[in-house]
Every structure is written in structure tokens, then in C-alpha cells.
């Protein structure tokens, strides 16, 4: 698929001698396609940058997009498609932005209709195709990392650990708990216990629609881990269906305190701490 050295040279000449015509036609096609979603000035800048990078690569005698001489060109293409991904353009729109070069080249070659020209055009097209596919791939990768980042942010957002009282933190769990999320929540809860020096944690599962064995295991393990660290967990907000599931699955909650509501759980903790204070300072109560 690589160009011959001659073809590469001729393409470079064409892009230099007809620079204005090619970039103009190229920009027109992109403008028409995007219908004002990116500003004309922005598109002109993009096209000129791509044009310059392609010329540079050809100037170094490149014959293939994967070649050493094309490193710079690949970087510019990658930056281009990442930019389009961030602007919310589709993969097709991004790739056709590059394919538009073909049409611009065809217009530039139209004057001379010899067989050589046709052959050149086919060879040039192959290079542009490579560029387009490369853009497509980078675009997909950029989108994937964007989605991964957002998923992580969502995970952070969806698992607040709040301080409820002096020495008491709570995690109100809302929504479906899969294994990954349960793990994140639990790690954050334990870290918050350390950071705030809180010996009590309330895990409220009112907003959790269903509990399966794995999730229940995660919660149980967290309670045991918290105990190892010197903190106590109370589970609140167990709805009737979930209580039935827990029993049906044969999950042992053992001596873990469970309360119907967050308020009950807090009352329970306050009573516990209250006892502690009265035991430590008996005179104040007397």
C-alpha cells in the first residue's frame, strides 16, 4: 500500500503548488459536513495544520503512514481526532474530515486527465485511507478513555461518605451495587474511618434495590475489616424483600447490628457512646 518515492515526491509537489486550492476545497467539504458545529476559523486551522504535517512528512520522503518519517504526522492526526472526540463529533465525521482530502486532491488533478495522474490518484488515496483509519482508531481510543474517566467520576459521585455526628460516619448506598462498586464504597468507608478517627460507621442500604450473595459478602467483609481496625458498623435500612433474600441465601449476619432506619441506627450509636461517657465520667451523670 506504500507510495513509491516518486509518487511521494509528486504528491508533495501537488500539495505545495496547489496548496491554496486543496486546503480551500478541503475546508469547504468539512464545513458543509459539520454544518456550523465547529467555527470556520477552527476548521481552517485544523485543515492547515493537517496539510502542513502531511507536507512535512512527504518532504522527509515518507512513503507510508507507519514509517519513521510520519511520526509527526501521526501525532497531528491523533491530536486532531482527540480534539474531535472531545467536541462530541462522531467517529464518521472525524474520519470523513480526513477523507475529504481525496476529493480536494481529485479537484486539483482534474485538469490533467492522463493515465499517470489516475495512477497517482489511486496511490495518494491509499495514503489518505491509512490516515483516515488511523484517525478512526485514535478517536475510538480517545472516546474509550473518556468513558472510563466518566465512569470513575460517577463512581466517586455515587458513593458519598458523610459525617453524621462526632465519631459517626454514614454511607447512604443508592442504586445497584455490583462487586466493583461495593469494593470502592467499602474501601472509602474504611479510609474515612481512619481520616476522621470515627469509631462508628452506619451503612444504610435503603436505596439498594437488591442484594445478592456477593454484595452481602462485601458488606460483611467490610464490617469485619472495620472491626479489625477498631470501629463498629451498623447496617440500616434493610427492606423486607432484602431481609427475605438474606435469609433465603443463608447469609449469616451474625452479631452485626442491624436497624430498620438510619435514624434508629444513629440513636443506637448515640446510646452506645452515651454509655461510654457515663462510664468514663460517672460523676457528671450523678
Amino acid at each position: 500500500m506504500a507510495l513509491s518515492a516518486d509518487e511521494s515526491g509528486r504528491l508533495g509537489e501537488l500539495l505545495t503548488s496547489r496548496a491554496e486550492q486543496v486546503t480551500q476545497r478541503w475546508t469547504e467539504i468539512m464545513v458543509g459536513q459539520l454544518r456550523g458545529r465547529l467555527s470556520q476559523a477552527e476548521l481552517v486551522r485544523q485543515v492547515q495544520e493537517l496539510h502542513r504535517a502531511l507536507l512535512d512528512a512527504l518532504g522527509k520522503g515518507t512513503v507510508d503512514l507507519q514509517a519513521e518519517e510520519s511520526t509527526e504526522l501521526r501525532a497531528v492526526l491523533a491530536e486532531f481526532s482527540r480534539g474531535q472526540a472531545r467536541q462530541g463529533l462522531s467517529a464518521t465525521e472525524t474520519a470523513t474530515g480526513v477523507f475529504a482530502l481525496k476529493e480536494a486532491l481529485l479537484a486539483a488533478l482534474e485538469a490533467d486527465q492522463s493515465v499517470e495522474t489516475l495512477r497517482d490518484y489511486v496511490a495518494f488515496s491509499a495514503l489518505v485511507d491509512q490516515m483516515g483509519l488511523f484517525t478512526f482508531e485514535t478517536f475510538v481510543r480517545a472516546r474509550e478513555s473518556l468513558i472510563a474517566d466518566q465512569a470513575e467520576q460517577l463512581l466517586e459521585l455515587s458513593t458519598p461518605v458523610v459525617k453524621l455526628w462526632e465519631g459517626v460516619v454514614a454511607v447512604p448506598l443508592v442504586g445497584t451495587l455490583d462487586s466493583a462498586r461495593a469494593q470502592v464504597v467499602m474501601e472509602r468507608l474504611l479510609q474515612t474511618l481512619v481520616d476522621t478517627g470515627s469509631p462508628y460507621a452506619i451503612i444504610d442500604i435503603t436505596g439498594v434495590p437488591a442484594v445478592d450473595t456477593q454484595v452481602a459478602q462485601h458488606i460483611l467483609k467490610t464490617v469485619v475489616a472495620a472491626r479489625l481496625m477498631g470501629a463498629d458498623c451498623i447496617i440500616s435500612g434493610i427492606r423486607p424483600q432484602i431481609a427475605q433474600t438474606i435469609v433465603a441465601l443463608g447469609i449469616e449476619f451474625g452479631d452485626i447490628a442491624t436497624k430498620a432506619s438510619l435514624a434508629d441506627a444513629l440513636r443506637h450509636v448515640l446510646r452506645l457512646t452515651g454509655v461510654e461517657t457515663s462510664r468514663r465520667q460517672p460523676r457528671r451523670e450523678a
Binding site: 467499602m186 474501601e187 474504611l190 479510609q191 474511618l193 481512619v194 478517627g197 470515627s198 469509631p199 467483609k221 469485619v224 475489616a225 472495620a226 472491626r227 479489625l228 481496625m229 477498631g230 470501629a231
Partner: peptide, 26 residues
């Protein structure tokens, strides 16, 4: 025993070590 890190506690649970008879604090 005080100051056990969360990651250590999680690992101990997985390992199956319950540290019976040890009192802990944050």
C-alpha cells in the same frame, strides 16, 4: 492494637485471619 490500615484489614479478612482476642482501636 491501633492504627491498622484499611488495605491491611481488608487483606486480613480475605486471608481468613480474625485476630481473635485482640482489642483494636483506630
Amino acid at each position: 492494637v491501633v492504627g491498622m490500615r484499611p488495605a491491611v484489614a481488608i487483606t486480613l479478612v480475605e486471608l481468613g485471619l480474625s485476630l481473635n482476642g485482640i482489642r483494636t482501636a483506630l
